[in-house]
Nucleic acid binder design. Structure first.
Length: 482
RNA sequence: GCCCUCAUCGUCUAGGGGUCUAGGACACUGGCCUUUCACGCCGGCGACCGGGGUUCAAAUCCCCGUGAGGGCGCCA
C-alpha cells in the first residue's frame, strides 16, 4: 500500500509551492490507490498557530485535496500534529542515545552559534562533533543545568561516510564522506528539530513515498543517516523543482500573490489553479494543457516530472483559468461571481437571488471575455449603467439612414409579442431590410446608443437583457424627432 | 569556505544518441470569422548557456567553466 504525506508548517497561508507539492502527493496516492496523510509540523512554536493550520486545511480543501488521515479526521498512526507527538520523539531520541548514535550537549544555543561563526570565519565547514562539545560537559554545568531545570540538547552522531539515494526525479544523488557534521535532533526545550521529527513520523506513519520540494535534497542526507540508525526501511524520495518568481528568484511575497487564498480572491477556479500548478514541473503524456483533476490523477507519474526550476507565470495561469470559466456550467460561474458583483455594488445578494435567471444570462454574455471571476462585475456594468445617449448627428446621408433605421426598429419593437433573443435578431434583420443603412455603421451606432461603449457583449444580448423599455428610450433619445 | 541540485523559444514544456532544418502551449504578431471586443480557426516570430571530449553521428553521454537555486541552524 502506497502511503504519502503532505506536511505543512502552520505558519501562515498555504503557498503555491506547498500546494503544488500537496497536489503531486495527492495525485500519486489516488493514482496508485494509496493513502494521503496530512501531518502538521508545528514544532516551531513561535510561528505556528491554529488559525494558520485551519487556513492551510481550508486552502487544501478548496483545491479539492482531501486526506485519509490527518489531525481533523484521525487515523491509526496519529496523532497527526507534531506538538502532540513530543513524547514519541523523546522516546526515539532516547533509543538513539542508548545505542550511542546520539548524545547530550551541554553547550547553550548561544555558545553553539559562536562556535558556528568561528568555524565559518576560519574558512572551515561549520561541522560539529562530539569532541568539540566535550569542553562544555563539565560536572559544574551539569549541576547548573539541573538547578535551572534546563535539559541538554540531543545531537545526532553523524557517521562520516558516503551516503546516496535514488531520487525519483533527479536520479542518483551522492553525498561525499564528511559532507555534514553532527546535528541537533532534540532541542533543550524538548522539541524535536525538523529533520528528526520528519524521519520519526514518516517511519512510524509508514510513509512509503515522499514527494517534496527540492529545497530538501540536502536534508535527505541527515534523514538517511537517521533511518539508518534505526535500521528502518528508507522510503522512495522524489524532489520536485523549486517554483521561481518572474525575476528567476525563489518565489516569495514580494512577487505579489503567492498564497492560495490570494488566487481564490483574485477569482481563480480551484481546478484551474490545480491544472496550472501541476504543469509547473509535470507534463501530461499527451502534452495536454487543459485537463481535469481525474485526468491528472489517471496520468500522473513521477517519470514525467521535470527537475529544473519553473518560473511562475501568472499570464499562463490566467489563460488556463479563462478556459475553465468558459467551459464550466453557467450556474456555477454565476454562483461564484455573485460575491464579486455584490462587492462592486451592482446588486445586493437578495437582488441577485431574485433576478437569478436574468443574472445567469448576463454573466453568460460576458464570460468569454474574462480571465478571472473578479473581472465579471466590470463587464456587467453595461447592463446597469444609466446611459444618456446624445442625439445622432444626421448631417450626412449615412448617419441619417442609420437613425431612421433605429427609429423603425423601435416602432417594430412596440408590437413585438415575445421578447427573446431569437425574435430580437429577426427584428433587427427586418429593420435593416427596410432602408438598408450601412450595416457596420448601424451596429456600432446601436452599441454606442445603448451602452455608450465601443465594445462589450453581443448586441442581441444587450438588447435582450437591457429590456424593451430601456432600449426604446435610449434609441428614442438618440434618434430625436428626425 | 564545504556539500548538493539545475540549465531547450520571453514563459511552461516535449524530446534522454540518428526520425531535430528541435514539437506543443502561453505571450507577442499577421490574417480569417464576426456588428465591435472577446472566443474560435489558420499562419508568423522565437530556444538546445559556453568550451572541450566520447562517437560514423550529440539537444541527448562525460569533463571543465559560467550562471541560478538549495543545504551546512537548538528554523521548517
Amino acid at each position: 500500500m502506497i502511503r504519502v504525506r503532505f506536511a505543512p508548517s502552520p505558519t501562515g497561508f498555504l503557498h503555491v509551492g506547498g500546494a503544488r507539492t500537496a497536489l503531486y502527493n495527492y495525485f500519486y496516492a489516488k493514482h496508485y490507490g494509496g493513502k494521503f496523510i496530512l501531518r502538521i509540523e508545528d514544532t516551531d512554536i513561535a510561528r505556528s498557530t491554529r488559525e494558520s493550520e485551519q487556513m492551510v486545511l481550508d486552502s487544501l480543501l478548496w483545491l479539492g485535496i482531501t486526506w485519509d488521515e490527518g489531525p481533523d479526521v484521525g487515523g491509526q498512526y496519529g496523532p497527526y500534529r507534531q506538538t502532540e507527538r513530543i513524547n514519541i520523539y523523546k522516546e526515539y531520541a532516547k533509543k538513539l542515545m542508548d545505542t550511542g548514535a546520539a548524545y547530550e550537549v551541554y553547550a547553550s544555543a548561544e555558545e553553539i552559534k559562536v562556535l558556528h561563526e568561528n568555524l565559518m570565519n576560519a574558512g572551515k565547514a561549520p561541522h560539529y562533533s562530539k569532541e568539540m562539545f566535550k569542553v562544555y560537559d563539565t560536572p559544574e554545568r551539569r549541576d547548573d543545568f539541573e538547578k535551572k531545570g534546563i535539559k541538554p540538547a540531543i545531537f545526532f552522531n553523524m557517521p562520516r561516510k558516503e551516503y546516496s539515494f535514488n531520487d525519483g526525479i533527479k536520479g542518483e544523488i551522492k553525498f561525499k564522506k564528511g559532507s555534514l557534521g553532527d546535528f541537533a535532533i532534540l532541542r533543550s526545550n524538548g522539541f524535536p528539530t525538523y529533520n528528526f521529527a520528519v524521519v520519526i513520523d514518516d517511519m512510524l506513519m509508514k510513509i512509503t513515498d515522499i514527494i517534496r520540494g527540492d529545497d530538501h535534497v540536502s536534508n535527505t542526507l541527515k534523514q538517511l543517516a537517521i533511518y539508518e540508525a534505526f535500521d528502518a526501511e528508507i522510503p522512495n524520495f522524489a524532489h520536485a523543482s523549486t517554483i521561481l518568481g518572474p525575476d528567476g528568484k525563489k518565489l516569495s511575497k514580494r512577487h505579489g500573490a503567492t498564497s492560495i487564498e490570494d488566487f481564490k480572491m483574485k477569482g481563480f477556479l480551484p481546478e484551474a489553479l490545480d491544472n496550472f500548478l501541476a504543469l509547473l514541473g509535470w507534463s501530461h503524456p499527451e502534452g495536454k494543457d487543459i485537463m481535469s483533476i481525474s485526468d491528472m490523477i489517471d496520468n500522473f507519474s513521477i517519470d514525467r516530472m521535470n527537475s529544473s526550476p519553473a518560473i511562475f507565470d501568472e499570464t499562463r495561469a490566467k489563460w488556463i483559468n479563462g478556459h475553465f470559466i468558459r467551459e464550466e456550467s453557467i450556474d456555477r460561474i454565476t454562483e461564484l461571481s455573485i460575491p464579486y458583483i455584490v462587492d462592486s455594488g451592482l446588486m445586493t445578494y437578495s437582488q441577485a437571488e431574485s433576478n437569478l435567471k436574468w443574472l445567469k444570462k448576463a454573466v453568460d454574455s460576458v464570460r468569454k471575455g474574462v480571465l478571472t471571476i473578479s473581472e465579471i462585475p466590470e463587464k456587467l456594468k453595461v447592463y446597469f449603467d444609466e446611459v444618456e445617449p446624445s442625439l445622432i448627428d444626421c448631417s450626412d446621408e449615412k448617419s441619417r439612414e442609420i437613425a431612421v433605421c433605429l427609429k423603425n426598429m423601435t416602432e417594430m419593437m412596440e408590437n413585438m409579442d415575445a421578447w427573446n433573443p431569437k425574435e430580437i435578431i429577426d427584428l433587427v434583420k427586418k429593420a435593416l431590410k427596410v432602408n438598408k443603412p450601412d450595416r457596420k455603421g448601424f451596429y456600432s451606432c446601436l452599441r454606442k446608443v445603448l451602452t455608450d461603449q465601443d465594445e462589450g457583449p453581443e448586441l442581441v444580448d444587450i438588447i435582450f437583457l437591457l429590456g424593451r423599455t430601456k432600449v426604446m428610450n435610449r434609441i428614442d433619445k438618440a434618434a430625436g424627432k428626425l
